[in-house]
Write a protein that binds this DNA or RNA. Structure first.
Lengths: 215, 215
DNA sequence: GGGAAAATCAAACAAACGTTTGAATTAATT
DNA sequence: AATTAATTCAAACGTTTGTTTGATTTTCCC
């Protein structure tokens, strides 16, 4: 037996993942969940409350698993770029077992709804900061500002893989997320470790347009 | 004097970028554009038509500039990963001069509306294929399927940078897109060039399916 | 088993939605 | 200047939206 709240969360998650938040009506959610229309407001207060509940249900356990994996690495003194990226991506690997989990995780970040921003900061803020510090320990020669950007790039690539599980023009793939993220990690490791090019090394807000075109 | 159609396109672009397609009403667009509500249907037929017009106005010139830059590289026989990625990102560099252009470009890809999919295939399909071939020439030792994934990752990182111009927790930055994309290219080059790890090389687990097929 | 709390339900609410209409106005053509 | 085409306009269309209400049913505790 699944509770009314879980039926609503499952139905809303699927529809939000497919059509987006704004394009999904509470009526279509209630119909898919096979519950009364008023149930959403009874259990979650509003459509926004339902959205927040979806985010918390899915994101929180993932981020706690991430932090636990990071704690384990710290205990072993095993801060390498590879192990840290593994700790970051591992908790997502079995997400495909829940049908709409990868999609909704990926879409959450790109959802323009205003409630999303504080929600994201609350859910991802501290976690991202801790991973950044770990990477900074693993790569002490790379300025932290540079690492922030590289982590930004990694997250973008990861989210893209979640929302579009197959590259454009690659037909369908049976590859699991385990294999996909293995590819992503192998792609990202040398990028994280690469030395900062001289043109980016100047400190502060460099506004000079070096005009140094193709070398 | 700006034509009614351009006023609508500008207003809709800004609002779609901020709130997303579904959450933006034609009334708010008309109000911002300072035109009559019925103007959208007169000039673009429907809300979807307006969306398609926005995509075409912005994406087409960018992708044509990309292809022109790629043609130039081909003429010089200068197919390196760096030059190819430059050709891919360069046309976006001055996009910041138009206020909502980076955001709308970034959001287009993540917009779940159904009309977007065929629109994206039409606008990006051939362009992406040609860049992939070029990368394949520059890196003949890396299997093309692997390069597709790496290009996928690059695109994800690029789009993330467009929609979220600043990494989480980095305050604000005055860095131009020229500098941001320089960072991205330096991040991506070694990832593209990295050898395929043995764990991904095993045959049998990976299936190559028809790449040009449509359902 | 009775009474209170929790949950479900059908129905209605006002507001907002994309779209259509037909007349009024402006621009272009002859 | 007259006529035609293109554009703008206010108003209304029928639906759909998130939310609320108040009665009804179910569940739980004493």
């Amino acid at each position: 037996m699944t509770s009314t709240q879980d039926c609503l969360l499952n139905a809303a998650e699927a529809l939000f993942a497919e059509k987006g938040y704004a394009a999904t009506s509470l009526r279509s959610i209630a119909a898919r969940a096979d519950v009364n229309l008023a149930a959403t407001h009874y259990h979650f207060g509003s459509k926004e409350g339902l959205l927040a509940a979806i985010v918390e249900r899915r994101v929180e356990p993932i981020n706690q698993a991430r932090l636990a994996a990071l704690d384990a690495l710290e205990a072993e003194g095993n801060f390498t770029v590879e192990s840290i990226l593994q700790a970051f991506l591992q908790p997502l690997i079995h997400s495909e077992e829940i049908e709409y989990l990868p999609t909704i995780i990926g879409r959450i970040d790109s959802e323009p709804h205003v409630v999303m921003k504080p929600l994201l900061e609350k859910q991802f803020g501290e976690m991202a900061r801790r991973f950044l510090n770990a990477i900074s320990v693993a790569l002490p020669d790379i300025p932290q500002q540079e690492l922030k950007w590289r982590f930004h790039f990694l997250v973008g690539a990861m989210l893209k893989t979640l929302t579009h599980p197959t590259p454009l023009g690659l037909g369908t793939t049976e590859d699991s997320y385990e294999i996909k993220f293995q590819r992503l990690i192998q792609f990202a490791i040398p990028g994280f470790s690469a030395p900062v090019p001289a043109t980016l090394k100047t400190k502060g807000a460099l506004k000079t347009k070096g005009s140094g075109e193709t070398k």
